[in-house]
Design a protein around this nucleic acid. Structure first.
Lengths: 159, 159
DNA sequence: AGGATTGGTTTCAACTTGCTACCAGATGGA
DNA sequence: TCCATCTGGTAGCAAGTTGAAACCAATCCT
């Protein structure tokens, strides 16, 4: 086998997510979808991606239940790609990547795009990982366990 | 040019993040690093990745400032890979992907790994995107603007 | 009707991926 | 000390993927 490795049967949800998205283009397509892009041409212009690549990625995202194909909203006989609820659930992923990038890849004053609260226009609060009872958690405060059947953790797992 | 497209000069932090991580293997390496892997062999066994691929990805992550090479903690003359502060800042990204995967890719009762609060062992609270003043935000409550110089948004941007 | 726009597919060369084999240095046991 | 093993890689190669450009069909505009 020389095909790119798949992770769709992994026990780890991170691996399955990564596998379902497919590649980075797909994530940028989702980013643009959150930002209002709906038409093939909009995605193509926004991303500068070759059309064959875009067509393939859109197909993967539609097959994966992230995007849905719906009749165009302008009355034409074309169609549009809109996020499904599953796709909209990627919102924290996009926000997390955005905040990481803002924090580490731009010089002070360097132009960049920023996500803001529509009501007031202020930047978002940084994402916080919290326990069920609301304490802020650092990586060291967490562990990964294997859940075998009915929600009863079976102990630490090397993943 | 037939080389894989780079995004490292994009205005969008999401694109730069995506570019810096490199590929999915890299993100799974980071996941394992959060989970305690430090040695080449640990990553290799944990991921089942070919050694040349792993070596290349580790190099990218080290060059990108996500991992650091340090002397082995067991006194041997080997070395270990540990997350830098920048790498640790990827924690919300991993958590976001994990929660998305948990929510959409496992049947009820299907075995999977789960991240829990070390103190008490309960699953984490779902990540929440919030405004600066603490309101929960949906995708529709946000907009992406272009910041040109000194923190003054210049209006909505098609990205 | 004629031209432009939309939304793709096809082709093909270059590049990347991943398996296997190989290798060099460090370690450990007899 | 000598040899086997472990660790951490590199080299070579086949197959798969990527992406630029060309092409194409259906739709829309006038």
């Amino acid at each position: 086998m020389v095909r790119r490795t798949r992770f769709d049967d992994s026990d780890c949800p991170v691996a399955r997510s990564v596998d379902a998205i497919g590649d980075w283009w797909s994530l940028l397509i989702v980013r643009d979808a959150f930002d209002g892009s709906r038409r093939f041409g909009e995605f193509q212009r926004g991303l500068g991606v070759a059309k064959n690549i875009l067509a393939a990625r859109l197909r993967v995202l539609v097959d994966g239940g992230v995007l849905d194909v719906v009749p165009a909203s302008d009355g034409s006989s074309y169609h549009e790609y809109v996020l499904t609820p599953k796709g909209r659930d990627l919102f924290p992923v996009i926000v997390a990547l955005r905040q990481w990038g803002e924090g580490h890849f731009f010089e002070p004053g360097e132009p960049h795009s920023e996500m803001v609260d529509r009501q007031g226009g202020r930047p978002l609060r940084a994402l916080e990982v919290r326990s069920a009872d609301g304490r802020r958690l650092d990586p060291d405060d967490t562990a990964v366990v294997k859940v075998d059947q009915l929600g009863t953790p079976a102990g630490a797992v090397p993943e």
